[in-house]
Design a protein around this nucleic acid. Structure first.
Lengths: 193, 193
DNA sequence: CGGTAGGGATAGGGTTCT
DNA sequence: TAGAACCCTATCCCTACC
């Protein structure tokens, strides 16, 4: 009697994250077989795990943007009604199916303003996207990240320095893990949320 | 900014219903690809089809309930059983958002007395509600339907037999479709309305 | 066949417009 | 307030490729 849509419970999600932390991504059958998680995840398949992890990943990447959007919605503060999505959003057209057009990078939220101090800026999102999409076995190096950003975003002149300093910062705070000049998104970062 | 809201034409709606009849619900991309309908539905997406079908469904469910009420008022006449399976069948309390309160099942209209043999009783309404709310991919099986009813209605002792026989009947007259022990509301039933 | 990656489709909740 | 049309995205499914 399968359920039409079996929503993931927080317990399952936690187990999955722990499993990835322990065995790494792409080891779904292994995670499922690990007695530490098998009971919690017994109603899931390895493919389910893969799908869910994919979903968690994009959520982590786009999370802050979403929060900003929701915040704006909940509080229709002041007037401006038109440039809703424009305000706090820094990456556009990622969702659009066409892979042709170049995306536009807008420095930092010019209008939104009410953002509390966050450990991430819009550049960070781009960096995370770059690392994710480059899909290097041990993560891309700084140069590749730069190239990715140059190729996929219209950037402002000081972008290079900005990215470099952000890479350093994100590594310091633990969002990224740097090893042999290569950057990866910390599993811990995924595991939080 | 968005599209100006493209209202569904009767032609499109007909094509959609025919498509569902031919391919089944949940086969929206298939329906869209069927050359028989693709020209008519060319400006619709698979998601549009799904959304429209959802609208049609709720309208049909609620519509039939209204019709039944009116029918009872208008003509308590006897006889004809093909009294359209569409109008006679009604579903109640589908709209209640809270899942908390238990509903009350009243056997068959005790007051009406001179009720002619109708193709539906109040049990039928409950059955349809169960099938609708259980939302199983291929429809719930008889056992699930029973459980749903037991959990959500105060029932009389012979409910089980009643439900079983009604399931058989509704399948015979085409209101339900039975396949591999699972019951679904007939697309025909939806498509009429 | 079993497993994973990726693309794509569906389901269902939300939102917007009328 | 309701209903129709539309959006968002978690979940599920299918296929290609080992």
């Amino acid at each position: 009697m399968g359920a039409p849509k079996q929503k993931w419970t927080p317990e399952e999600e936690t187990a999955l994250k722990a499993g990835v932390l322990k065995h790494g991504t792409g080891k779904w059958r292994t995670i499922l077989s690990d007695p530490e998680y098998s009971s919690i995840l017994k109603s899931r398949s390895n493919v389910d795990l893969k799908d869910k992890w994919r979903n968690i990943s994009v959520t982590a990447l786009w999370g802050s943007r979403k929060k900003a959007k929701l915040a704006l919605k909940r509080t229709p503060l002041s007037g401006s009604r038109q440039d809703d999505n424009a305000t706090a959003i820094t990456i556009v057209s990622l969702a659009n199916g066409d892979g042709g057009g170049q995306q536009i990078y807008a420095p930092s939220p010019p209008a939104g303003s009410c953002e509390p101090p966050r450990p991430s800026t819009s550049v960070d999102k781009i960096i995370l996207e770059a690392i994710t999409n480059l899909k290097r076995p041990f993560g891309p190096d700084g140069k590749s990240i730069l190239m990715y950003i140059e190729e996929n975003f219209k950037m402002q002149p000081d972008m290079k320095r900005l990215v470099t300093s952000r890479l350093k910062y994100l590594t310091n705070v633990g969002t990224l893990v740097k090893k042999k000049h290569k950057y990866r998104i910390s599993p811990n970062y995924m595991a939080e949320a």
